[in-house]
Design a protein around this nucleic acid. Structure first.
Lengths: 217, 217
DNA sequence: CGCGAGTGTGAACGCTTTGTTTCGTCCCCC
DNA sequence: GGGGGACGAAACAAAGCGTTCACACTCGCG
């Protein structure tokens, strides 16, 4: 298992930790070098040590994810942790001093785990409801259920925007379109059809807020 | 931001670390309790401390992810890290002793997922009364209470404008609308219904100012 | 062209909410 | 102590609202 290591002069502690958990670190000084030295099976992961130059490291991390399509693990000093809050170009991070076991687990999760970017990030879930927005299929309580287009769109809207009340007008404009011109009974009827398909058990997920609208969740 | 904490008797260190980074931990003993105590906005995350019973913890973690649709963060002792290699029912983990900054960053990264809503401070509070203006739900003394539309609007007006006397006419025009044409006894009746729902204990929050009107707070 | 699924609309029904009225009680002022 | 106004309680009437049903319309498809 080869991993790119950035920057090119890594700390001994990091290198030996990687070796001890069974990875072959290859230090590189930049993205082009990482491309050049890419082994046959590709890189398993990028390890980016932020201790010398955090800005350059974040930069490398984001590019490695983007252009090499590999996950990125940051190595951060305790004092730098706070800077990670608003950053997003990485998949995981580990603090120094490095704990070998922790490193092993984090690498393993990046490599083989479900962290493989998006196996199905097109699936919306709520309790035992699944909405596969890629295939337009719905699963309710484990069993696939046929939803019509409008039912699907309405349910998707509700699942994506739970826990607040939406007026009929808001629902109409968000689901049917801002320029839709129709009576608000339409919403009622579709809500009713949805409740019927959700089944008695789950019908209560959609709460009617009298004089206001509907709330999901 | 509320987070479920398992098991029900968490370590002081963990609890205070969570509090220090701005989360409200709610210890629970199992999934059903987590469902029962679920706050309005839902849980932000599950925090599972594996130090006492790793098996039960992993179990809870997996179920929380599955049934509550929330991410799960494990708290593990250094000696247990190795056991995580083959497990998958969690989203991230953190080692003890806990570093607050690391905790903050990991929670933030978990929280910023798709299931996240805006940090809705659309909640009005007075003593142990909560009015969630986004969901139109009211909580009195911790227990959710059904208020009708008018009761809700009236109470909202009072909570937003406490500590001064409002005449019946003022209340009518502010709550019912400037052009409302109705008798002023209407206000009395709604005040009475509100007091009844607030309960004996809290009925006094609304004071009658004889010949003038009502005052809240 | 006819059929059927999907969708929107209108009307009837029943329940909840809401406003009014009536009656009794309290309180203030004389 | 008595009178009158103000307020609270309860009952009542009606208005509002959501649900449901029936039906019309559209669009694909055989």
């Amino acid at each position: 298992m080869y991993v790119v290591l950035y920057p090119s002069s890594p700390s001994m502690a990091l290198t030996s930790a990687l070796l001890s958990v069974g990875y072959h670190p290859v230090p590189v000084g930049g993205l082009t070098e990482a491309v050049d030295k890419e082994p046959d099976g590709g890189w398993a992961c990028a390890i980016v040590d932020l201790s010398s130059d955090a800005g350059a490291g974040m930069n490398f991390s984001a590019k490695a994810r983007e252009e090499l399509s590999i996950p990125s693990l940051l190595v951060v000093d305790r004092t730098l942790t706070d800077d990670l809050r608003d950053e997003s170009g990485f998949d995981d991070f580990i603090l120094t001093p490095i704990d070998s076991n922790e490193l092993r687990v984090r690498l393993m999760r990046l490599g083989s785990g479900p962290g493989d970017v998006e196996p199905d990030e097109s699936v919306l879930r709520f309790r035992d409801l699944e909405l596969n927005t890629a295939t337009y299929q719905a699963t309710i309580g484990g069993s696939p259920t046929d939803l019509t287009y409008m039912e699907y769109e309405l349910l998707r809207f509700l699942v994506e925007n739970p826990n607040r009340v939406w007026s009929r007008e808001q629902i109409l404009s968000k689901v049917w379109g801002y320029d839709y011109f129709g009576g608000s009974r339409t919403v009622d009827v579709h809500i009713r059809r949805l409740r019927a398909k959700l089944g008695e058990e789950r019908a209560g997920w959609i709460t009617t807020v009298r004089s206001v609208g509907y709330r999901f969740g």
